[in-house]
């Protein structure tokens, strides 16, 4: 697959997602539907699109990793929109700050603890390997 074809796959999946959202009146954003559709497609029928040949990464993987690696740049325009919301920030700074801190800590702790205890109880042979992984600093 060439680079233009890789972009056609990404844009095509997004377009399909937007169409499905409108036709089926789904509450999900179009790009999220596109992501889901593409992930499912890549698992079985289109597996070869992301297959690595002789350790060479596919064009689709290259295109996606460069987009993901620079995703930060892409949300600057939306983030700058905060200049139109300064009044809201000034008025509601306390609920905003507390909501942010509390929900982030809780999300982190709950996800980490549940994952840790379930994988430990499952006592998968793989679990030992991941805990004792010599490459890590834990």
């Amino acid at each position: 697959m060439s680079m233009p074809a890789a972009f056609a796959v990404l844009i095509g999946a997004q377009l399909l997602g937007e169409v499905m959202q409108r036709v089926l009146h789904l509450p999900l954003p179009g790009p999220v539907i596109g992501m889901f559709l593409l992930a499912v497609a890549l698992l079985i029928p289109c597996k070869s699109w992301v297959a690595r040949r002789d350790n060479e990464v596919s064009a689709l993987e290259q295109a996606s990793s460069s987009l993901i690696a620079n995703m930060g740049l892409l949300f600057i325009p939306a983030g700058v929109g905060i200049v139109t919301e300064l009044a809201v920030l000034k008025r509601d700074w306390l609920p905003i700050l507390m909501g942010l801190l509390v929900s982030t800590v809780l999300g982190l702790v709950v996800t980490g603890l549940v994952m840790h205890h379930i994988t430990r109880r499952a006592a998968h042979p793989d679990a030992e390997a991941s805990v004792l992984n010599p490459g890590g600093s834990l």
Binding site: I11, Q14, L37, L43, V50, L60, A63, S65, P77
Partner: peptide, 22 residues
């Protein structure tokens, strides 16, 4: 002016499918 960058958010979201599938 900045909307041209903003537009790429869509394909970037779809691109998350690749690490997910891998």
């Amino acid at each position: 002016g900045a909307q041209f960058i903003h537009f790429l958010l869509g394909p970037a979201t779809v691109a998350l499918a690749i690490p997910l599938a891998l």
